[in-house]
Design a protein around this nucleic acid. Structure first.
Length: 361
RNA sequence: GCUGGGAUGGCGGAGUGGACAAUCGCUCGGGACUGUAAAUCCCGCGUCGCAAGACUACCUAGGUUCGAAUCCUAGUCCCAGCA
């Protein structure tokens, strides 16, 4: 790991980091103060969604998405590449070399291009700009995968160009992240990585779908990207992942992660808990260093202890298991908020532990 | 006391002679979720069995019928109205 910090407007943030997904400029059920209190150093917002849902004028008026949502910490904007994939899947759009044609809310056809993505991200005024890429679908044929890599590289070139234009225009120089595609084809991944390095970025992202057919994480791809990137590059696991997957990738040199899991899982009644008595006792070297806690089980309905003793979040330091079970049972929104806060704190503790491990070595 | 209505699985509540181990909802148990179309979705839930299947079941006891949760008789309990 050569890069030790992530540059944000509010100062340097120690790497590695996990940024949860505030896709639509909100981390569902929380507000920005809540997020900060979980010791989460930054969030990811989504270019495609914000482009659709918030007008350019309003963003300009606020001087960026950070001001809009009153979030002064780290900010990364995703390009919309992941949405390009879902559009294609839905069949409600079309991907061409020029860009993506999609139907907006009102049914109007709109063209979304790599240039639009980058320039809009400058408007969002985030710390890292991610280039628009074409997602290699899981199970894609070699031919299909090659096609997405070809387009991803061509879009990356255009993005870089637009980025340089925007740097001149604004005088700002956020990180620029290239995204590696190529599915499970290691040669393709390598080729894509090299081509992107040739274009020149501040870092590269592990794009596409990182989970193999057998449901396990594809570490081979992660390794190929890491091994073929310059040492000063930031390595970013896009949409990664489960706690143990983050630990593994961090050991390979990845330093930035984002994922919907902690927040979505919280809303779906899956809380993460460390198999440890206290925060100090957490050992991420152990194979099963964490497990799941389902908050509304009957057996918890009368327990007065907190969800986890190895946690200092708002939930664990103030409320009992029975109270949380009650909140879930009566479907009160605060159940989701407390659960989300807890999972985010779990992830921020995870990153603290990873930093400890890496700096010790 | 009289009159009418009713008693179905953990709960609510369908079914009103065969296609019923019983629609559906809830509860309960299990699973999924990875750059968020997701406070969502999937599975199970009489007993035994991995399963095919077997057995016991719709208040109780009789009865009618080839066949009853469904029809008849008696009983028990509950509810409503009237005394």
């Amino acid at each position: 790991m050569s890069q030790k910090f992530f540059r944000s407007k509010n100062g340097n943030i120690q790497l590695p980091v996990f940024f949860p997904d505030a896709t639509r400029a909100v981390l569902r059920t929380l507000d920005s103060v809540d997020i900060k209190n979980t010791k989460t150093p930054g969030v990811l917002v989504n270019t495609y969604h914000l482009y659709e849902e918030i007008g350019i004028k309003l963003i300009k008026k606020h001087g960026g998405i950070g001001n809009f949502m009153n979030w002064k910490e780290g900010l990364i904007s995703d390009s919309g590449g992941f949405q390009v994939m879902s559009i294609a899947k839905k069949g409600s759009g079309k991907i061409s070399d020029e860009g993506v044609i999609f139907k907006s809310e009102g049914g109007k056809k709109e063209l979304f291009t790599p240039e639009i993505s980058v320039s809009f991200q400058f408007l969002l005024n985030t710390d890292m700009v991610v280039v628009l890429d074409e997602f290699t679908e899981p199970g894609a044929s070699l031919e299909k995968a090659k096609e997405t890599v070809r387009r991803t590289i061509s879009w990356a070139k255009r993005s870089k160009k637009e980025y340089e234009k925007q740097v001149k225009l604004t005088g700002r120089k956020p990180y620029l992240l290239g995204v590696v595609q190529g599915g499970d084809y290691l040669d393709l991944r390598k080729e894509c990585t090299k081509a992107l390095v040739e274009i020149g970025f501040d870092g590269l992202g592990y794009g596409g779908w990182p989970i193999k057919d057998d449901k396990t994480f594809n570490y081979d791809v992660a390794r190929v990207i890491a091994e073929n990137s310059p040492s000063n590059y930031l390595l970013y696991g896009l949409g990664v992942g489960k706690p143990h997957e983050i630990v593994e990738c961090a050991r390979m040199g990845y330093t930035i992660f984002d994922c919907v899991l902690p927040t979505r899982d919280a809303r779906h009644k899956r809380l993460y808990v460390y198999n440890a008595k206290s925060i100090k006792d957490i050992d991420i070297k152990k194979k099963d260093f964490y497990s799941y806690y389902v908050p509304d089980k009957e057996k918890y309905a009368s327990q007065i202890d907190p969800v986890s003793s190895a946690c200092d979040c708002l939930l664990c330091s103030n409320y009992s298991r029975s109270y949380l079970a009650h909140l879930f049972k009566i479907k009160d929104a605060s159940a989701l908020r407390l659960a989300t806060i807890h999972n985010l704190r779990f992830y921020s503790i995870l990153m603290e532990k990873i930093r400890e491990e890496i700096f010790k070595e």
